[in-house]
């Protein structure tokens, strides 16, 4: 496999990440009567007017587009909760606050299709954008700490989009470090000298990938 992963094959496009996020379950309040839907991806309903029920986001959006339901804003998407999260994000420069794995995609879809169901939509949106910026900044600063001795990077509570953006860069960086750190490379450098000297001060090395 030539030791390299093909970046084009291993990247999730934003629309693919959104596709995955559309399977997240949300609460809707239908305004129609409809029998249960027995779908490949699961069984949903039956639907009664004004009785809340749980459906995947894509189904909620489809019903909403046709004016058949209102989507209940998830608990975390309120001004109170988001303000707390934003403060906590700013206070702890090394940690990420727990948010839904797909918070960026879910909030985007809801803003695009169910804006009128979100209370304080304008404020909520700007809070989420602020949170996103703070977190991305942390990710960027975190990347600067990667070095040849980095074997693993702990990224707790990182969200899907955030992981997706750093994945290609991270993987290739670690591969580059690995390549330049590999015994063959060191030996080549030694060959130019008079005799090979054992390299002892390089610290523990671990294969990123077996070859």
């Amino acid at each position: 496999m030539a030791g390299q992963s093909d970046p084009h094959l291993s990247i999730f496009s934003p629309s693919e990440v959104e596709f995955v996020a559309e399977d997240e379950i949300v609460d809707i309040v239908p305004n129609i009567r409809m029998d249960a839907l027995n779908m490949i991806c699961g069984d949903f309903g039956p639907f009664f007017p004004q009785i809340p029920t749980k459906v995947p986001l894509w189904l909620a959006v489809a019903l909403k587009k046709r004016g058949k339901c209102t989507i209940r804003t998830p608990d975390w998407m309120t001004v109170d909760r988001l303000t707390q999260v934003l403060e906590a994000e700013r206070e702890s420069p090394r940690e990420f606050q727990p948010l839904p794995f797909h918070y960026i995609e879910i909030s985007k879809l809801l803003f695009d299709h169910a804006r009128d169901d979100i209370s304080d939509a304008y404020l909520v949106r700007s809070l989420i954008e602020d949170i996103r910026d703070v977190r991305f900044h942390k990710v960027e600063t975190g990347l600067e700490t990667i070095s040849g001795r980095t074997h693993a990077v702990k990224l707790k509570n990182l969200s899907a989009m955030e992981v997706n953006i750093v994945r290609p860069f991270m993987v290739r960086t670690l591969q580059a470090f690995y390549k330049h750190d590999s015994p063959q490379m060191i030996q080549q450098a030694d060959n130019t000298g008079s005799r090979p000297t054992p390299v002892t001060d390089r610290g523990p090395r671990r294969d990123l990938r077996r070859r």
Binding site: F19, L37, W58
Partner: peptide, 12 residues
């Protein structure tokens, strides 16, 4: 409506 919802499920 029901048909289109099932169609979406199928497409996905």
């Amino acid at each position: 409506l029901v048909v289109s919802l099932y169609q979406m499920d199928l497409d996905r």
